[in-house]
């Protein structure tokens, strides 16, 4: 089976930690995080990096501040135009 072709012009551009990322509509913010340099969503208590684990809202590893709202789960949030995502990593 071939990968479905991306729909025409159906992309959105958001900012993750200040970096612009353009993704197909329907991409989750957690998936878009992998398009930045690092797949890191937060740091643990001793500063070691963490990334998304479960992809489905269970582990809370992917929490970030999205459009000013803290502690939002990136894996349950679709990317939107002009969205601002800040991780605490």
């Amino acid at each position: 089976m071939r990968e479905p072709a991306p729909k025409k012009a159906s992309v959105v551009t958001l900012r993750i930690n200040g970096r612009e990322v353009t993704v197909p509509v329907g991409t989750s913010v957690a998936a878009a995080l992998a398009m930045t340099d690092s797949f890191v969503s937060r740091a643990d208590l001793s500063g070691r990096p963490r990334g998304p684990l479960c992809g489905m809202g269970v582990c809370f590893e992917c929490r970030a501040t999205i459009d000013g709202v803290p502690e939002v789960l990136m894996c349950l949030t679709p990317c939107r135009e002009d969205q601002t995502v800040v991780t605490d990593a």
Binding site: P24, D44, R50, G51, P52, L53, C54, G55, V58
Partner: peptide, 29 residues
């Protein structure tokens, strides 16, 4: 949800669940 069992290094970014990784790929990773 998936059952995770701890092993050395399982907290490194890039280590996910089996279906967790599948879901992220479906979501555009």
């Amino acid at each position: 949800r998936e059952r995770f069992l701890p092993f050395p290094g399982w907290t490194l970014p890039g280590v996910l669940g089996v279906s967790g990784l599948q879901v992220l790929v479906k979501d555009g990773l």
